[in-house]
Amino acid sequence: MTTSWEVGQWLPTLEKGPITQVDLVKYAGASGDYNPIHTVEAFAKEKGLGGVIAHGMLTMGYVGQMLTDFAWPLFDLTDYSVRFRAMVRPGDTILCKGKITRVAKDGDMTVATVQVFAENLSGETVVKGTATLRLA
């Protein structure tokens, strides 16, 4: 099988949200991360956060969905890394984006490097990272 991967190609953008407080409770339950800064408004305020903030891993999960929508089941996802850059809060809508920045051969495999990021509707980047896709 051949691919049409090209440097500069954008993956389809995935829009997530607006995020609700219930979404954060659901993610806490599903992930086991019960840190109250994500779920208890009074606690988060007391900690100086101005209210609950989303789990970074929830946003990473959203970007992961954008990647797997594109990659699975045809391609392998072998690496996925992000840096958390800004807080995400209930009410935010997150746009998950990816752009192929490198396509290379590794033996019989084709390997694509994807720069990924998530931004809010103000255009602020909340998560930024890279992923690697492989095709036999």
Binding site: M57, T78, D79, F84
Partner: peptide, 15 residues
């Protein structure tokens, strides 16, 4: 309390 998750990396040999 006060922990910040700065970066997260995954490497997968398979799903």
């Amino acid at each position: 309390d006060g922990l910040i998750h700065g970066e997260q990396t995954f490497h997968y040999h398979r799903p």
